[in-house]
Design a protein around this nucleic acid. Structure first.
Lengths: 239, 239
DNA sequence: CGTCCGTCAAGAGCGGCGCTCTCGTTTTGT
DNA sequence: ACAAAACGAGAGCGCCGCTCTTGACGGACG
């Protein structure tokens, strides 16, 4: 973590930082497919082959950007939850809505990075294990809200729903362990469904599926998230 | 529709068909980014520039594949609904589940095509108007189920949910007109939310977000769709 | 102090890509 | 029969990821 001792190590770390920064700017402009090591080198006044001293391949640079992206989204989600939780830790519905909005707003502000994280996988790219750990960061926030809400007895089941079949018990157990969501299978299944709905809604808006139909994205999103929150059992505020 | 009269026109139509067929195979193998006009030409024993007589650019070929994809998915969804509707037109929950399963199964069978339709937009590609019409085909089936269910009085509202805010009335109206979903705003909003949840769930499974956690994708999917069906007000069968 | 080895930037080059332009040839419609 | 349109082939432009070689530089050690 501390700056490397030798001058070489220091300049090396700086160059790596500069490369990823330019790459992030390229990503924001042209998307993942437009990310070009040659263009980065050009912008740095280097020759393209020199970049390979720092990133052995384009995919390795992509991995760095993906991890950064997951962390940025995760941090935004954490901030959103903390902002509500600080004042009213029991306002679980508000916390859920705040988290959903944070995801949407981060996605709208960084569309290409969101596409990199949750869009079609980059062909030929195999996500290394480092990325899957970073990918869980925002999910943990979300799991915490559901867990705390249930512990507080704040989950009001929403009408008669089919119970979780035993076939998904093992999967729900893995989710429980993976992100620390300590709730029964029924609640976990509803939470996963709502979570998928959140990202599906953001994807639809961002990728243009809603084009020319849903114009007031924010209003629709808020209402949609309120409905999904109710599916979990959360009381969401009127929007 | 009938074969062109002149020999040239006939061979032209055949060549276009052969190009799209090879392109579809390339798409299934390598994904949209791996689609290469040069490779297609090579496989056809032509020189690359000759392809441009038939498709003026790579994007135009992509457009053809996208329209084909929407139609294939739409047809699969129509078949799934018709299979249930023929016997039991009032089994709205079963029809909803059948449609959801059709989407998932088509996506699993044609992952790259699904990614082309619902994944990150191809950078620089601007969807022409032809594609958006084709994109509505599966949605119409889905809208028909919800509309018929409501007309039959088969929608049992699921507990107390926030009512649709007036801010989304115009958007819901556009959806009503666009896909022929003749239901009030409250129902339309729930339907759109469930619909987003369907594609979010399929995307998560297909793009690897569920990696190593949800192993029995089918069981989780069925239960998730049952929950979303209940959100609309449909009675879904035990799975 | 001098040597020596690891690190580095640079350059040339490979095969691939989308796309354009030209040039003969073939087919079509008149 | 002849002009016009359509066509395949070829060369070429600028881009890409990636590899290999070469020569210079600098910190570590004898």
């Amino acid at each position: 973590m501390s700056a490397g001792r030798t001058a070489r190590e220091r300049v090396r770390a700086e160059l790596i930082a500069e490369i990823t920064e330019i790459a992030r700017r390229q990503l924001a402009t042209d998307g993942a497919a437009g990310l070009s090591l040659r263009a980065i080198a050009r912008e740095m006044g280097m020759v393209s082959s020199a970049i390979y001293r720092y990133f052995p391949s384009r995919d390795d640079l992509l991995t760095a950007l993906i991890i950064d992206g997951y962390n940025a989204l995760g941090a935004a989600v954490e901030r959103a939850d903390d902002a509500v939780r600080g004042d009213r830790p029991d306002a679980f519905g508000e916390r859920w809505l705040a988290v959903c909005r944070a995801v949407r707003e981060w996605a709208l502000a960084h569309p290409h990075e969101f596409a990199l994280l949750y869009g079609s996988p980059v062909p030929g790219y195999r996500a290394p294990q480092d990325t899957v750990a970073a990918a869980l960061r925002d999910t943990r926030v979300y799991a915490r809200i559901v867990t705390e809400a249930r512990a507080a007895g704040a989950l009001e089941p929403l009408g008669p729903c089919p119970p979780a079949p035993s076939a998904i018990a093992a999967d729900m157990g893995r989710i429980r362990d993976g992100v620390g969501m300590d709730v029964p299978d029924d609640v976990a299944a509803r939470a996963v469904t709502a979570w998928s709905g959140l990202f599906g809604t953001v994807s639809f808006e961002l990728f243009g599926t809603f084009n020319n139909t849903i114009m007031d994205g924010a209003a629709h999103f808020d209402h949609s998230m309120a409905l999904l929150g109710r599916l979990i059992g959360l009381e969401t505020p009127r929007t």
